[in-house]
Simulated scan of single mutants.
Amino acid sequence: MTGTDTLSSMDLAALLCSRVCHDIISPVGAITNGLEVLEEDNGEEMRDFAMELITKSAKTASAKLQFARLAFGAAGSAGAEIDTGDAESVARNFMAGEKPELEWQGTRVLMPKNLVKLVLNLILLGGATIPRGGSIKVLIEGDSRYPTFTLVCEGKSARIPASFDRLLRGKPADEHGIDAHAIQPYYTGLLARESKMDLVFDWVDDTITIKAQPVSVPSADEMIGVAQTSDMDEEIPQELADRA
């Protein structure tokens, strides 16, 4: 997948912040409403209702923030790896408050952070393709550095939003440019390009399959050569130290 990124780093940061704020403002507002009920009404029934609202909304806000931290945030230093088991847990907690049900299949491994961020953002894309709910099955296969992600999204009235094609290629969906509503698919395309992953969509009836796969995978001999070079680089300083 190719494309030209049209946003400055400042605009990208601002729009991602807007997206996160949009996602958490509803549960945070519900917490505020619950606290107001506790202050104004001493009735036992209303207090129980308020506490239930506060508890549920706090869990939702926490799940959304944890998901956003991993899907959009720095998630460690440059070159960091993330446990896919942690990503699965964050995704399950987030999707518990959404319409589609989530199924996750894949061996637990450490994976480069941008790849983990990519699969979480693909889950958001999958949710957008089945707005009435359904199921999203996530399958992670292959080497942790060169994985293949397959998401099977099934639901009534499944569709691929018309804006996805341009936004994933780093282009505005229309003359209005890119706003906070469009930033998530745009960012997903950016992650795919940074990770050298190709995105393919397939639509059959009420099932949409999203696949992300490496643009190219080194041969076994090439991967062994890289590993050996890395080992030599680590050994040279030690040899020099021994001679000193």
Rank of each mutant, 00 (worst) to 15 (best):
A173C: 09
A87H: 00
A80C: 03
M46Y: 06
M10E: 12
R169P: 04
S216G: 00
A30R: 14
G73T: 05
R108L: 00
G3K: 07
M1F: 12
Q238H: 08
S26L: 14
C17I: 12
L102Q: 02
G43P: 03
M111W: 04
R108S: 02
F164D: 04
M223Q: 14
M51W: 13
L7H: 06
F49L: 10
G225C: 11
E40R: 15
T32R: 13
L199F: 06
K211P: 03
G155Y: 07
S9G: 05
K117Y: 04
S57Q: 06
E101R: 15
E88F: 03
M95Q: 01
A212T: 03
G134A: 08
G29K: 04
K99E: 04
I31R: 11
V37W: 05
A128G: 09
S135G: 12
L70C: 07
K137C: 11
D83M: 06
S77P: 01
A173Q: 12
S18K: 13
D233E: 06
G177H: 07
I54E: 04
K113M: 02
P131G: 11
A241K: 14
N114T: 13
P147N: 05
A182E: 15
C153H: 00
V116R: 00
A180K: 15
A68V: 00
G79L: 12
A75S: 13
I140Y: 01
A96R: 12
L38Q: 02
C21A: 11
H22W: 08
G127C: 08
I25F: 09
A14T: 09
S230E: 14
L167Y: 14
I208G: 06
M46A: 15
E45D: 11
G3I: 09
C153A: 12
A227N: 15
S216W: 14
D179H: 10
M95N: 07
T229F: 06
A14I: 05
D86A: 01
L191S: 08
S163W: 07
I178A: 03
R145V: 06
S219Q: 04
S89N: 12
V200M: 10
M223R: 10
L7E: 08
E98L: 07
D5F: 10
M223Y: 02
K113Q: 15
L15W: 06
E154Q: 14
I54T: 09
I25P: 00
M111T: 01
I136Q: 05
E175Q: 11
A180Y: 12
L122G: 03
A158K: 13
G34I: 05
E44I: 08
T209P: 06
V138R: 03
A91Q: 01
E222T: 14
V90T: 08
D242G: 02
S135T: 14
E222N: 09
T2R: 03
K156H: 13
L16P: 00
E36V: 11
H181W: 14
F49H: 13
E36S: 13
S135R: 13
D83R: 04
T150F: 03
F94C: 01
L110I: 00
H181P: 05
F149V: 02
G133F: 12
A227Q: 15
F94Q: 00
L38N: 01
E175V: 05
F72V: 03
L191I: 01
L7C: 07
K196S: 14
R92N: 00
